[in-house]
Design a protein around this nucleic acid. Structure first.
Lengths: 313, 313
DNA sequence: AATATGCATTCGAAATTTTCGAATATTGGT
DNA sequence: ACCAATATTCGAAAATTTCGAATGCATATT
């Protein structure tokens, strides 16, 4: 079996299995039988001549090579979709605005930030793509996206010459399923020693901030799950796996949609969101709408919320 | 037929056909029958829902969409190979030096520039990748390559924060097959009006320089072929399709390998080659060897040659 | 103008690859 | 020890890719 037989399907199956953690769940999401996934995964491993997963009992854990391969797979997949989109919409005369969303940015936040572009008189056609910062910066300099939504500004170390636009900021709140909330709310945050916690990975701004916050207060929660995608954290949190943090602006949304309760605020942490573009002076009408209007929007929401909770300062 | 059936083979066939210009030649290079290529190309067009080639008689010309798709295809293909290389060499302890070569740089020049790295006491393992400047810059900031070899420095307009290292420069000579050389050598360059010419595309430094050179002298050759890859120009030139330009340092090599003769120098044009890296202060031993030793090397060769031809100034 | 050659394409059969049903093996929990 | 859930193996069916033969078209040759 040669490498050129590599299908986009192989990559897709691999990505979904890595995301879902088990072949069984992946097979459900893909509407395929588990044998197929298992077989194609083995084919992929043979083609790449390397083990992608470590089989621990019936658990599949990504190997180091698997993690590297996953990054490539996601980027290749994105390029494939971008190609299809661009070719297909080439003839269309709609205003197009391609946005890259760093996968550390919660989807609801992204929606709030992008919404202004959809409310223009001349409606904008948005194309969204997710990925790691590195991969998206490559897309930005190649003009495959007009804008990146991220949780941090880029600096000299990124080696990309681009401009940051602060869109807004929010505090961080802690959430949990009703049972866990009842147990841990009484002495929050001091009583969180040993409490089960779901966290963004250490290399994200949010994850690093939260860890620092706990260390500064000599509190040591038991970290159960760490992942990049905050949507996944929300799911785990809803299921009661542990306490988790999220943007304060999303409090009411999280409570309603995931049936979780708020324990309190992590005072002192401010999460900021940035738009990153190649031009300092933005002419692209869609991007303009986002960078101008979005800032007001998120700050307003935040102010409303501060009046409601009224616990700061 | 769904997009997920997209194979790396489809992309490869497409790339080779675009490069070779005809399905027949592509089928020879790929050791496949023309029907296969033709069929798979049609499958690809159906999957992308767009025409990649315009069929003019028995000539295949890339459409606009085809050109865009080609860029994506090359990038996707490179990523696939990079993935395989990185995973396969992950355990190996060799010094690795990944170099991106802009496809406007003649292969022989690239070899000359990279050779110093291979002569180190501790031998360096080179990994080479070709592609457009944009695609390679993405690889550079994502650390998939340590260095880019290019025919121009990067400036502010590229939006990448990186450093240029001039490696050397050379004059430009004009070559042709013996018959053409005999015909056009007597009154070079004034008598080149209407002469068949093979050129790098307009968006390359070399192509633009040569065009400007002719315009300044009110000479109007008939441009027959324009392409990015200089190796292809050499082949056409060898076949006698037209006159073509190449680096003066490669005069003897071109004469020997492609059985062509030199018509003369294009006085005033200097072709420069640059290494582009993310660090100003280079620590990578392989990259260091290239940026330090290569400069001397190419300049030396050039000086030798200037003594031989003795026609300047 | 007729002919020949080279090239792209269409069609059906063979080879290859992917998918699934059935059966087996292993894990984790009760 | 048993059960439920999972991953895997094996062979057959379905789908895809490849090639041989034949066709049609365009350019070159006579």
């Amino acid at each position: 079996m040669h490498i050129h037989n590599l299908n986009f399907r192989h990559l897709r199956y691999f990505m979904v299995v890595a995301q879902e953690g088990t072949i069984a769940r992946a097979s459900k999401r893909l509407n395929l039988t588990p044998q197929t996934i298992s077989g194609q995964l083995k084919v992929l491993e043979e083609m790449l001549e390397i083990e992608l997963f470590e089989r621990h009992g019936r658990r599949l854990d990504l190997t180091d090579a698997g993690r590297q391969a996953l990054e490539y797979a996601e980027e290749i997949f994105n390029l494939g979709e971008a190609m299809q989109l661009q070719l297909h919409h080439a003839g269309s005369s709609r205003i197009n605005c391609a946005v890259g969303i760093a996968d550390v940015v919660p989807k609801s936040i992204a929606y709030k930030l992008l919404a202004p572009a959809l409310e223009l008189e001349e409606p904008v056609h948005l194309e969204c793509r997710e990925g790691s910062m590195e991969s998206l910066l490559g897309d930005l300099i190649a003009n495959r996206v007009d804008l990146i939504l991220a949780d941090r500004p880029i600096d000299a170390s990124t080696h990309v010459r681009a401009y940051n636009h602060l869109l807004g900021e929010t505090g961080i709140s802690m959430f949990a399923s009703p049972e866990l909330a009842q147990q841990y709310r009484p002495n929050f945050p001091e009583g969180l020693n040993g409490a089960p916690l779901l966290l963004p990975t250490d290399d994200t701004v949010a994850g690093a901030n939260i860890m620092k916050w706990f260390r500064a207060r000599h509190i040591e929660p038991a970290i159960r799950v760490q992942c990049v995608d905050s949507a996944l954290i929300d799911i785990f949190g809803q299921a009661g796996t542990g306490l988790f943090c999220g943007p304060s602006v999303l409090e009411s949304e999280l409570q309603r949609q995931h049936s979780v309760e708020t324990l309190g605020r992590l005072e002192g942490i401010r999460e900021r969101y940035y738009a990153i573009s190649l031009e300092r002076q933005i002419r692209h009408p869609g991007v303009q709408a986002i960078t101008h209007r979005a800032r007001e929007l998120l700050l307003e929401t935040e102010q409303d919320l501060e009046q409601e909770t009224k616990s700061d300062d």
